[in-house]
Design a protein around this nucleic acid. Structure first.
Lengths: 225, 225
DNA sequence: GCCCTTGCTGAAGATCAGCTGAAGAGCTGA
DNA sequence: TCAGCTCTTCAGCTGATCTTCAGCAAGGGC
């Protein structure tokens, strides 16, 4: 699970980074509102931990701009306890949850997990691309009405591509998201699985939904190939 | 799921409407007690989110009148944190749950879902999947007209799978829901019971309703196998 | 057309997830 | 207390699945 922490207080930010990393989250940290907005726009995070009092652009603004740009990432706001900042306003601007400082780390982790679960369940369960149907809930894939049996890895890969249908997705990102692998993982692993996927959902049907974007990764055709 | 929000604070009401709608609820909003009572009486809601401090008729009154009229709709009360309003009294008047302001949106959604589940489970439930019938109320299972005797655990397991027929359900979730077990419980326990279940409802009938979804858990075929 | 880079794919060994029979503990009702 | 039923744990087994490697094919710049 990928988390972006936007917090200007360095010590707290560092503590969060360490703590959340050891909880199994993949954590990025930035220290001001503008950077937060930029990073959140460029990268696919599951959840953003957003301090309200930030230099540059405050948390409310970051939140409402993100929402205005159509993002449905999970947002957990950190509010100071002095009451200057209003929880109701946090929720108004589109935050999913908030936590008052000082907060318990255990509670933060629990909330993040709850949030991630909810966001996950909000994601579309079924993606239809022409005659190719990817059903995340049932974990099935059908092509032209035929159910195609896929291995776990193949399905995860297809599912990831389907969620970003029409977009080119890099092997690096695929390794990060579908595999939980570190930076030293082998892109060839992805190639092998892409190959297997094609042999199952494309070749037998004379289609080409899984497209190679040379130098950039792979793309699942929005019309199913 | 249909929700009625009775809340006079416009901003909060609007935020709730947006937030709950994006969570998949069907949301209606009214801003005072009398309208709330009227709407709740006229329409079939699953849950009512009821502020206590309301113009016209306060939340307690709305709640007790609804109960007096025989309604068993789920009621979640919103209490201000200033202590002027009493949670105990809320429950006394027939509310199912309450939440103190300011509250976390995530918590609200979780409570609403819990409430809806509770309300929903009050009604007798029967799931028909082809010739496989799972009757939660009677705690019986029949296959092709034959009653299949199941142990309590087996039935709970089947019941849980039946409620999410067609979806892949993870062993982790099964352990959480069917067993009340902690995080260190053994997935093999589930496997053993799945095996027993198959031997009773599938094998003797030459069917395969209980499907293994490798790496993801199990799925009960929506057509009974 | 040539060369370098990037991507494809078949094979093989290692690993892993899931299945199942058996044993023993726990519970319940006679 | 005892018998019978149920639940959990364990360990071995099987087949599916993953990764790595190596050689080949294709694309693109020159």
């Amino acid at each position: 699970m990928r988390v972006l922490v936007v917090e200007d207080e360095r010590r707290l930010a560092l503590a969060l980074q360490h703590g959340l990393t050891s909880e199994g989250f993949t954590v990025d940290v930035v220290h001001d509102g503008l950077s937060g907005l930029a990073r959140a726009t460029d990268h696919a995070y599951d959840v953003i931990v957003l301090d309200i009092m930030l230099p540059g652009l405050n948390g409310y603004r970051v939140c409402s701009r993100l929402r205005a740009s159509g993002s449905d990432v999970g947002i957990l706001m950190l509010t100071a306890k002095d009451g200057e900042w209003d929880e109701a306003e946090a929720l108004d601007t589109g935050a999913d949850d908030y936590l008052s400082k000082p907060f318990s780390f255990v509670v933060l982790v629990a909330r993040l997990n709850a949030l991630a679960r909810r966001i996950g369940s909000r994601a579309p369960r079924r993606t239809v691309l022409g005659d190719l149907v990817v059903d995340s809930a049932a974990r099935t894939c059908t092509r032209a009405g035929t159910t195609v049996p896929l291995t776990p890895r193949e399905f995860a890969l297809l599912d990831h591509l389907a969620r970003r249908a029409g977009e080119a997705v890099s092997k690096r990102e695929i390794l990060d998201q579908v595999w939980d692998s570190g930076p030293d993982s082998d892109p060839n692993t992805v190639e092998v699985h892409i190959s297997a996927l094609r042999r199952k959902i494309d070749t037998p049907f004379g289609r080409a939904a899984v497209q190679t974007v040379r130098g950039a990764g792979y793309r699942l055709a929005a019309d199913g190939g």
